[in-house]
């Protein structure tokens, strides 16, 4: 089962702390959404508002077209995969996964059949009689997922579900989560602070900061064309260069750039957007300060001749490692050169 979600103007305070500031967000049925941001940005509070654990002070929550703002967690068509999994330690996996069905009044046999099906979805049907403490971290995570999916929710909420796993297992579980979501078609809302995880799993990423949404879009769009300086920096490493705008042209250390903007601005270029040659914005020659081989690329620190006080990071092709002190020409595709207002972190364009 699946349903669209609509949040309208959600506002919430914890005491003096303004946790959510006028959040509006529309999620399509069957979409996989990642809520991404640093700790304290409001992403978990927003998830709790969706799940019915926090009633927002203002705003409206619609799930499947019905107003759910004041409906408690137990009565919502949502279930949650908790950060620490919250498996019931005194129940077998089968009873854990069947718990929601039991609460829904399902008979023993039907409940066990469905719970087994949910366990086999996550590849654990063999372990149905085990207790949670006999499982590894990754297996517990799967049981938590099976338990939440067994009641066939319209919307599945995941609160940093992979946070407790080591890196390798996390990457593997990301692929599994996405595959399972495609299979069941349920709307998934997944909270994370790891931008690689967000890009790996999500149809759309919602970047949050200080209780606000900074950017919403596909992973490629949010990475390549972020809507704010914060989103740009949070999605990955970024070279930042202070520049000044004069109406329809921007003055940079490397010459004028044909963009509109006024006052103090920040010019952003991702390390992999800088290259030796080709068309586009010319940054002139730069001196190699150091370079290191990373397998997929060479990571180099460079000082542009035009602005020797700057240090730029570039990811160059892995075929050759430039020697220290040599000079190379730097260019960037005009598409990849971003300009943001320095002051309020908002895009100009």
């Amino acid at each position: 089962m699946t349903a669209p979600v609509s949040l309208t103007n959600i506002d919430h305070h914890f005491g003096a702390f303004h946790a959510l500031k006028g959040i509006s967000l529309d999620i399509g049925a069957g979409e996989y959404i990642a809520l991404l941001g640093p700790s304290g940005c409001g992403k978990t509070t927003l998830l709790n508002v969706l799940g019915g654990f926090v009633e927002p002070m203002q705003g409206r929550v619609d799930i499947g077209g019905r107003d759910m703002t004041h409906v408690p967690a137990a009565k919502r068509p949502t279930t949650t995969v908790f950060q620490d999994y919250a498996l019931f330690p005194h129940m077998s996996l089968l009873d854990n996964v069947g718990f929601g069905l039991r609460m829904a009044g399902l008979g023993r046999r039907a409940r066990h059949d469905k719970a087994r099906a949910a366990l086999s979805l996550v590849g654990l049907e063999e372990a149905a009689q085990k207790r949670p403490h006999a499982l590894s971290g990754g297996q517990r995570q799967r049981v938590a997922l099976a338990r939440a999916l067994a009641v066939e929710p319209d919307v599945l909420l995941l609160d940093e579900p992979l946070g407790a796993l080591d890196l390798k297992l996390r990457r593997q579980m990301q692929d599994e989560l996405k595959a399972i979501q495609r299979k069941v078609g349920t709307t998934f809302v997944h909270v994370t602070h790891d931008q690689e995880e967000a890009m790996a799993i999500a149809d759309r990423i919602v970047v949050m900061n200080a209780g606000r949404i900074e950017d919403i879009g596909t992973p490629a769009r949010v990475y390549r064309q972020p809507q704010s300086l914060f989103a740009a920096a949070f999605m990955g490493e970024m070279n930042r260069i202070a520049v000044t705008g004069h109406g329809d042209s921007i003055e940079t250390p490397f010459g004028p750039l044909a963009r509109s903007g006024a006052g103090a601005l920040t010019l952003c270029i991702r390390p992999e957007a800088l290259c030796h040659a080709g068309e586009g914005f010319d940054l002139g020659p730069a001196t190699v300060r150091d370079a290191a081989f990373f397998g997929t690329h060479v990571r180099a620190h460079l000082s542009p001749v035009a602005a020797p006080e700057l240090t730029l990071v570039a990811h160059l092709p892995a075929c050759a490692v430039p020697a220290e002190g040599t000079q190379i020409a730097l260019r960037a595709d005009v598409e990849d050169v971003l300009v943001f207002d320095t002051e309020d972190d908002h895009a100009t364009h």
Binding site: G51, G52, F53, P72, A73, A74, K75, T78, T79, T80, F82, D84, A86, L87, F88, P89, H90, F99, G100, M103, A104, R147, A148, V151
Partner: peptide, 29 residues
């Protein structure tokens, strides 16, 4: 740990009485 388990049970549709009877008391046995 108990509190999170109780929260999960509520999320799965358990009433207050069911939470106490099926989760809190067995976990605290």
């Amino acid at each position: 740990q108990q509190e999170n388990a109780e929260r999960a049970a509520r999320d799965l549709g358990a009433t207050e009485a069911q939470v106490v009877r099926l989760i809190t008391v067995p976990m605290l046995a």
